[in-house]
């Protein structure tokens, strides 16, 4: 099967400017660095990592909401990176986004009907009935359209955000932490809704999240990002059962499990220190400054390799790719 989106060598640098009137550029934030991935039709690719790893920027880049510094994003046989805002407009019907914050992402001055109608109006497809149908699709009452977003709870608002994204019948949805702001009892309903919609409408998802439990539940494949790079990408079961990159291993081991007996007996890999600044990332492997393997197991020669050579994503079979010179699968759950 051909991928619906192919990303190759995607790079995003944000300029860092000096203070004062001159505002000279004094450096770059390396937000996304040489990222490759594919999304296949009817697939959910989970993109996980901690704050500042570049996962949100990657989602924005995919929709051309921020211009890429380099790289290609191939969507339906066409590179969208060089497209202007006007040229992007027809493609907006194919790709949409759901945001994390169900409060900030809906215009407080608009009724729910107006919020959902907006994409239809922009593309000249508005029909009252369509909006009502969308409300029912996401599990809301069609009569709720003339209320304002703030009259709804967080979970309901997130459903409104989903309805707006679905209005143009897109093929790809970027879901940027869609359930992170919701209470657990509400979160499950939205997760189920997203799964149902995918089955029904044949959508492809890029599911961006810091919550590995939700990602394990919803994703087919998972990409793990650290400091702007993808360090590991694998089918979901493969990743959670045989994580091979030391960062992925630490990440998985750090997730608390709501099961007291398992939790008491688990082995936890505690990372030292903090994420380095993306303005001046470490040479070679960006994870080496916190890597327990680098610190504890590797010889001097092996470490030199980590510091000098950027590890490439290499396939270990089953579509399991790891960017570590000394990758070694480990079961952690």
């Amino acid at each position: 099967m051909n991928p619906i989106i192919s990303v190759r060598g995607l790079v995003k640098h944000f300029p860092v400017r000096s203070r004062g009137i001159l505002r000279r550029q004094i450096g770059d934030v390396h937000a996304v660095c040489d990222v490759d991935f594919d999304i296949y039709p009817h697939e959910t690719l989970g993109l996980v990592g901690e704050s500042g790893c570049g996962k949100t920027t990657t989602g924005r880049l995919l929709l051309n909401l921020v211009p890429a510094t380099a790289g290609t994003i191939n969507f339906q046989g066409r590179d969208i990176v060089p497209l202007s805002r006007a040229q992007m407009r027809p493609l907006r019907r194919e790709m949409q986004i759901v945001f994390q914050d169900p409060y900030a992402s809906l215009d407080p001055r608009m009724t729910v009907h107006e919020v959902i109608a907006e994409p239809l109006r922009i593309h000249g497809l508005y029909r009252r009935e369509t909006v009502r149908d969308l409300l029912t699709t996401v599990g809301l009452d069609a009569s709720h359209g003339n209320r304002y977003a703030h009259e709804f709870s967080g979970g309901q608002r997130q459903r409104i955000g989903v309805a707006r994204a679905l209005a143009l019948r897109p093929k790809v949805l970027v879901l940027d932490e869609p359930v992170s702001a919701l209470d657990v009892s509400i979160q499950a309903g939205v997760v189920n809704l997203l799964e149902d919609l995918q089955d029904e409408l044949g959508l492809s998802y890029l599911f961006i999240s810091h919550d590995l439990s939700v990602v394990r539940h919803i994703a087919d494949r998972v990409a793990v990002m650290y400091l702007g790079r993808i360090v590991e990408i694998a089918p979901v079961e493969e990743l959670f059962q045989r994580a091979a990159h030391p960062y992925t291993q630490a990440l998985i081991s750090a997730i608390p499990v709501p099961d007291p007996r398992k939790e008491r007996s688990r082995r936890r890999i505690i990372l030292a220190g903090d994420v380095p600044s993306p303005v001046d990332p470490p040479s070679g492997c960006r994870f080496r400054t916190r890597c327990p393997k680098f610190a504890g197991q590797l010889s001097e020669d092996e470490r030199t390799k980590c510091a000098e050579e950027v590890p490439a994503l290499t396939d270990h079979g089953e579509g399991h790719q790891t960017a570590c010179h000394y990758a070694e699968a480990l079961a952690l759950i």
Partner: peptide, 11 residues
């Protein structure tokens, strides 16, 4: 975010 959302819709 709602401004960014509008952009994403093609506004």
């Amino acid at each position: 975010e709602f401004i960014e959302a509008a952009r994403a819709l093609g506004a």
